[in-house]
Simulated scan of single mutants.
Amino acid sequence: MIRVNGVSIGDDTVAREIQHHPAPTKEEAEQSAATALVVRELLLQRAASLGLAGEEEEALLAGLIETEVRSPDPTNEEVERYYRRNGLRFTTPALYEAAHIFFPARKDDAPAREKARIKAEAVLAEVLANPSRFGDLARAHSSCSSKDSGGLLGQVSRGDTNPELEQALSTMEPGTIAPAPIASRHGLHILRLDRRAPGKTLPLEQVEAWVRAHLRKTSKRRAVAQYLQLLAGQARIEGIELAGADSPLVQ
């Protein structure tokens, strides 16, 4: 039986709470659910000690946190430091204009894969011998709907196509054709890169509001975790081993 300052939390209550705490194992789910219930009980008891009552429970606890937990707004220096240290988060992805000729073959189908490889290498030889025929060969051999436009994929960016193609495009020079078919989980591709527009770093002024909101949220979460640790340290809690001081109680 779990008790918080003498108030019991039964196994049936923990069992009902588990559905809100998916975890790799039943034990982890039970621990997470029990911790959440202990935290809720600590907050309810704190609210009662302050004379806060008569509200819907979620609103009551949210009001308690808002009243008791203060976190400073980030300074200009903190915003600038975060921006400098996380520059990649504020860089737009590169844009590619590319074309391909696609030969389908699932990765787990070895015979089909080999057949596709042989055909792709034969067509690639034709393409390399006369690059101006790329469009005609795409219309004749590609199994992608892009064949109707000569294999043109239009503008693609990160997440728009297969990771294997993205990796290849990032290493190719504009105006070149990959010297070997590119294998993806879907099949093989003869790949041509026409143009590349490199990613651009967004100026601080454009992302400052997001950075401030992110730092404010992170600071508030840390302050809430410390507040809950303080409540737990002042309480008499039995029947459960709570997370250590370096592990958040916030659920």
Rank of each mutant, 00 (worst) to 15 (best):
V156P: 05
R185V: 14
E126R: 12
F102P: 04
A178I: 04
R139E: 15
A197P: 07
R3D: 10
V250Q: 09
L249R: 02
R236V: 14
L215M: 09
D108F: 05
D136S: 10
V14C: 06
E208N: 10
E114F: 01
P203Q: 14
V38D: 13
S149T: 11
V38K: 07
P181N: 00
G175S: 09
P74R: 08
D136P: 02
R40G: 11
L230C: 02
T35S: 05
A34D: 11
P104C: 05
G54L: 04
E164A: 08
L215N: 04
G175D: 11
L43N: 11
A138M: 09
R236D: 14
L61N: 12
A129I: 03
A125L: 05
P74T: 04
E126S: 10
G175Q: 09
A36L: 03
I9A: 10
L188S: 12
T171D: 14
R196W: 03
D148H: 02
A243H: 10
Q31P: 04
L64G: 02
I2N: 06
P248R: 10
T161R: 00
P104Y: 01
Q229N: 03
G187H: 06
G239Q: 12
A110E: 05
R85T: 06
I2M: 05
E58Y: 04
A140Q: 15
L242G: 01
G6S: 12
E173M: 13
L165K: 01
L42P: 09
N86C: 01
L169G: 11
S219C: 07
G187R: 01
S32N: 15
M1N: 09
R185F: 11
Q167N: 12
L231W: 03
R70T: 14
A116N: 03
S8I: 01
E241F: 04
S32A: 15
E205Y: 08
A138Q: 00
P181H: 05
N162T: 09
H189P: 05
L52P: 03
R133D: 14
G87M: 05
A48P: 09
A120N: 07
K107N: 00
E80M: 12
L128P: 07
L95M: 06
R40P: 06
K115Q: 12
A138F: 04
A23P: 02
L231M: 06
A183R: 04
H141G: 04
E97K: 02
E66V: 04
T171C: 06
V14A: 08
A116Q: 05
R40M: 00
D73E: 15
L124P: 02
S184F: 06
V250N: 07
V123H: 02
L137Y: 07
Q155Y: 03
R46A: 13
